[in-house]
Design a protein around this nucleic acid. Structure first.
Lengths: 107, 107
DNA sequence: TGACGACATGTCAGATATGACATACAGTAC
DNA sequence: GTACTGTATGTCATATCTGACATGTCGTCA
């Protein structure tokens, strides 16, 4: 369990949202959160590589800057569904998506 | 996803294979749908390998048999989020998940 | 200093996904 | 035939997600 800052950003919202457990996250919960964080990082990276601002991306997604910010922060209010749809909108292929999922984040 | 488009897709039953060829789906829409179908197939396969019924799996997921059936059918009412969480609950690793995403479906 | 651009964060009305239920259908066994 | 198991499908109340808005922070530039 070494996910440092981004994990910490999430922890508060998740522990409150889960509301039934308290002694830390179960295997499944942390697997889910870590996956979300990798997708979030992948989204930010791809957006930046394309030279887009959050506002630009929001326009493409028909969403808003604040939601894009939450996506990239791995906010508990963002679903994997939205993250993946956003990556797809940015032109991410299945193979690239697959890589994002399996690539360990830098410590 | 935009409501009207979804309703239209739903009305015409986009869960069938090769939907893109019959409906006027954009690249992004069909990428999303095909991804969902692969996850759905992966879920069914893993459930069956473990010798579980839909009722059994529903219990594990704290969901219902009908929702499991919809998941495995790739129903429009099911999110990628739920599909992936379900796969995680079945013990699917990141690597396996990645494989499900990139494995082309049998025609 | 102020103004600007990019990003973060909190809130909330409205949209969507979810579990649960009822019911139907296909096999299998008796 | 009945009974049972497993799966599919339609509906619905409500729990959750989403876009939009307001506002704040931080860096840069003149």
């Amino acid at each position: 369990m070494r996910k440092e800052k981004k994990k910490r950003l999430e922890a508060r919202g998740w522990k409150i949202g889960a509301a039934k457990d308290f002694l830390g996250l179960s295997e499944e919960e942390s697997a889910y959160i870590e996956l979300k964080i990798r997708l979030a990082a992948g989204l930010r990276e791809r957006r930046q590589v394309k030279g887009l601002s959050q506002v630009d991306l929001a326009a493409k997604l028909q969403s808003s800057q604040s939601r894009v910010a939450k996506m990239e922060a791995g906010d508990p209010s963002v679903s994997l569904d939205l993250l993946i749809r956003s990556l797809i909108t940015l032109g991410t292929s299945d193979r690239e998506l697959s890589k994002i999922i399996t690539t360990p984040r830098a410590a």
